[in-house]
Design a protein around this nucleic acid. Structure first.
Ligand code: FES
Ligand code: FES
Lengths: 144, 144
DNA sequence: CCTATTTAAGACATTGATGTCCTAATTATA
DNA sequence: TATAATTAGGACATCAATGTCTTAAATAGG
């Protein structure tokens, strides 16, 4: 039961890693992949997508790396997951049927619709700033 | 964002198909695969797992097919999904980290834990009987 | 008893997500 | 300017989920 893809998991963890950093310097993919035990090349591509989506700012060359492209308070989990997985997230039928909606609901639509909306709201309201703050304060982990 | 696997989707749809049937006769996999446009052989294997798990009763040979192994009111969505996907469902870290729990929580644990518990409860409380009743009453669909 | 029908089960194929590797472009620093 | 470090990006490989095919076993009905 993976609510989000591995790519999204990695993207979220990297975003949190950057946001929870004390200093403001750019963070290299190499460091993140090593610290969080994620494939370097795979993580690179995911972060490229997030960069193209305007969430991260990248700098090439020595001392280069990634930083948030805007204040952490302006970046939501939904922003991140959508930049990685696309926009259909939180819109699909739980039975996989085409065209989820009130028009032609499946047996689970009334129930799943409510839960799905809650989940969407959680992702839409939760900012990187808040999570980064809690992560630093409580020493929460970003890796196994 | 598929909360459950395609296998689970098919298993749930088939269980609902059987439970929503007016008569009590056995339903053939061929009929279900045709009516719901699901691969016959693939559906066969999923239903075999549900049969081995004691949710369905199968009869071989002419006029054979599948029926519920017990009253629809005694079969929950959780029973079905677990029989298809295994028991780890509703126990995993949303960031994919090993050993989700209060001991070593990830930044999203406090939030995801609550939502996950709600989802688990929904699946644990929802019976095939209830869904089948609503499906018949409101003419809900089980296929595209 | 024979035949058509149907589930059981294993082998194999396809596909999309995940992961690896190589080269190019860019930048700080010596 | 030369070198090392770093992201960008494409090609390719691997893997697990999904889907297909074939044969065997069981059963109802003529
Ligand atoms: S139609 Fe199935 S969840 Fe909306
Ligand atoms: S540790 Fe991540 S959700 Fe529990």
């Amino acid at each position: 039961m993976a609510l989000i893809s591995k790519s999204s998991e990695y993207g979220l963890r990297a975003a949190l890693y950057i946001a929870a950093r004390p200093d403001e310097a750019h963070v290299s993919v190499r460091e993140m992949s090593a610290q969080m035990d994620i494939s370097f090349h795979f993580l690179t591509k995911i972060l490229q997508r997030m960069t193209r989506a305007g969430l991260l700012a990248s700098t090439r060359g020595a001392k280069g790396g990634l930083a948030l492209a805007k204040p952490a308070a302006k970046i939501t989990l939904l922003d991140i997951v959508r930049s990685v997985e696309g926009d259909d997230l939180f819109r699909e039928c739980i039975l996989g049927l085409a065209g989820c909606g009130e028009k032609r609901p499946c047996p689970l639509h009334r129930y799943w619709g409510k839960e799905r909306a809650r989940l969407e709201k959680l992702f839409r309201k939760m900012t990187l700033a808040r999570l980064a703050r809690e992560t630093a304060r409580d020493g929460l982990r970003l890796a196994d």
